[in-house]
Design a protein around this nucleic acid. Structure first.
Lengths: 212, 212, 212, 212
DNA sequence: AATGAATGAGGCTTCATTCAT
DNA sequence: GATGAATGAAGCCTCATTCAT
């Protein structure tokens, strides 16, 4: 096992295992394709090329992997929020980068999110978690809008939280487009950003076009 | 539903039966609460207060009721599109009414739609149907936007189909708000319409505020 | 189903079912032969000549049938306690009849009791129930001994509860003998009764020999 | 255990290993608490603080340890039979000591015996072994009773083997009492011995009270 | 000697669906 | 039309055991 070569052996061993990673990847794909209920542990282990019992070496149950995947998704969204790479002084650029990253994460996880929202219907814990993520993202965007208004940059026609809600809705709806034709991503993103700025009541200057 | 075409049986057809209606209602509630897989036929029949076997008098399978419910949803959306009640000559009012109706139907079926989208992941037929509904709505809105542009009423910052996409995303995201606090519906709708017009690049005149 | 002919149809239908009875009988035999863990639901249903799923129509789980059987055993013991058939005025005859019935029930359920005691090790509820039965029987015998002493009939060398304990131990140990050679039952019972009376400090008169 | 015969390996044999001892002790406790089936090899190794695989260094299987424990129990019973410490010329004292030792061993192994008897239901070898132990003890006691009768010391009301059976039953039933309240052991034992002698038809002289 | 990792085999339980009445 | 009864099929999970190191 190469694991012994590159990973310092600690108590976390189980968590670094290649097998575990393979199972997680397989689970993600399978859940995304088949949904939760139709995914069987056998589907996952076959794809990961291990035996069914091995699954239970790493996860307590089918539910357990699903939670792990959900946590990973959460992390991805919270990280995307950081809007890396945009000039922090250029508020418009920051706004654009933030939307862009969000849409990218969303597009990459489209199907899984559909499944997650379905599961959240019956799983209180999942529901709380996913709603938490949504609220965090929304609050941040709301704060941002408020800031832009205070700075006299934006002039929206509705309260900041409504604007944020609308903006996130827009973004969500653009994700499938990008997932469907990745080649058009730059163009689609450009339109999305323009519409976003328009909704904020910002005059789109040339800087807005520089995103990712 | 071809059933209406060939199953004429008696005067009072199976399709009218009270029992059938009860089963459909029960199925809708149960699917919405528990999702597809976790809903059992027993759940549905218990709620409808009939025996498990009776279910199969009216439906071929669990899948069958789900399809029936999906058809009903489709009808609801297509009907909402008709924008009843708005002055056909006031394009802005028509736009507002259309969005409003859409959001209302969406809000009333939130959970079921979540379930439907989950099922569409694995059911090709369902996927095609639901996508068809979305496309129809989108196309109509796109046409509408194009018309407004041609009429010099709207000045969007992106192509009509992009605007329509963004608008529908907005609307979808507002539905949960309305479902959560129906009392605030008027206020929320007002903001939604404003943002919608803003995105279309329409100067919101006083008429826009008159919606529903 | 003849059931409709001889049993008044009530809500208890499920409980009268022939299938249920067959499953219970099959479960008793199988548990007694194989013990709890090695008994599979398949073993039971095969013996009852129904499908595996049918088992779950009548019982919630393997554990559930086991509890039902345990209740039946409890009832058998409590009923045996009543010492039917002995002249109530002849205390010695009552004593003999009581022991005799107890041993008979025990002998008929030897293996099942072994299994039950094993299960009681890990199942608090079972333990409480079985201990309750034992205590009830013991208390009754203790009361009886006390009475005999008060009446000057018995002159035991130890306190009544100790005598009762010892007597029940004797009886338990005789059960296997009777189960092993039913033909010798009368003779064995005679000795058992004699030893029992001897332990009570009763002069065995001719009446004692009249048991069962 | 043939192991002692052919597995001589090194000076300090596997059979002495501390690890092995720890596993045996852990197994005894675990089997006694959980029963055979519910005890997992993992339970045993966790308690012994070694890895699961280590178990198989010392035992061929879960069944194997169980057999080892059973052998140990057998040895304990057979040794208890020797009635160490009683004046060999005082037959009554010997009788008392023998019963006492038996009860002590039984009390110390109550739960394990319950498990063993459960296992004996399905394991022919175990059944034969355990029955062998019982028979040996019974035969010895029978011989002893016969001797007492021949010596004119005892005057039982039933044949020696019946008396022995009854006596062992009494003893078995007293074991739980002693296990439950060890502080009362002397008192309980005294009553047991009295009842035992009473059953043998021996006038309890003062010597009988000197036991253990 | 000790163990981390992996798995074959097996058992419990659920549930959509059928069918005779 | 309604239903009680029965079941085939399928999936989750556990665990004793093996093996390479």
């Amino acid at each position: 096992m190469p694991a012994t070569l590159w990973s310092v052996r600690t108590g976390r061993d189980r968590l670094d295992s290649q097998t575990r990673a393979a199972l997680i990847a397989a689970a993600k794909v399978t859940f995304s394709r088949l949904g939760y209920a139709r995914t069987t542990v056998a589907d996952i282990t076959e794809r990961a090329d291990v035996s069914r019992a091995t699954f239970y070496v790493y996860f307590a149950s089918k539910d357990d992997v699903f939670r792990v995947l959900t946590e990973q998704l959460k992390d991805a969204f919270l990280e995307a929020q950081e809007a890396h790479g945009a000039d922090p002084d250029n508020q418009v650029a920051v706004a654009a980068a933030s939307v862009t990253h969000f849409v990218d994460v969303y597009a990459r996880n489209l199907a899984f999110i559909t499944v997650l929202e379905h599961q959240a219907l019956t799983d209180e814990q999942l529901r709380a978690m996913w709603q938490g993520v949504r609220e965090r993202l929304l609050k941040r965007m709301t704060r941002f809008v408020r800031q832009l208004v205070a700075d006299g940059v934006a002039h929206p026609v509705a309260p900041p939280d409504m604007v944020a809600t609308a903006a996130s809705g827009m973004a969500v709806r653009f994700a499938p487009l990008i997932a469907a034709s990745p080649a058009d991503r730059p163009q689609i993103m450009r339109y999305l950003v323009r519409l976003y700025l328009q909704m904020l009541g910002i005059e789109p200057g040339p800087q807005a076009e520089e995103t990712s």
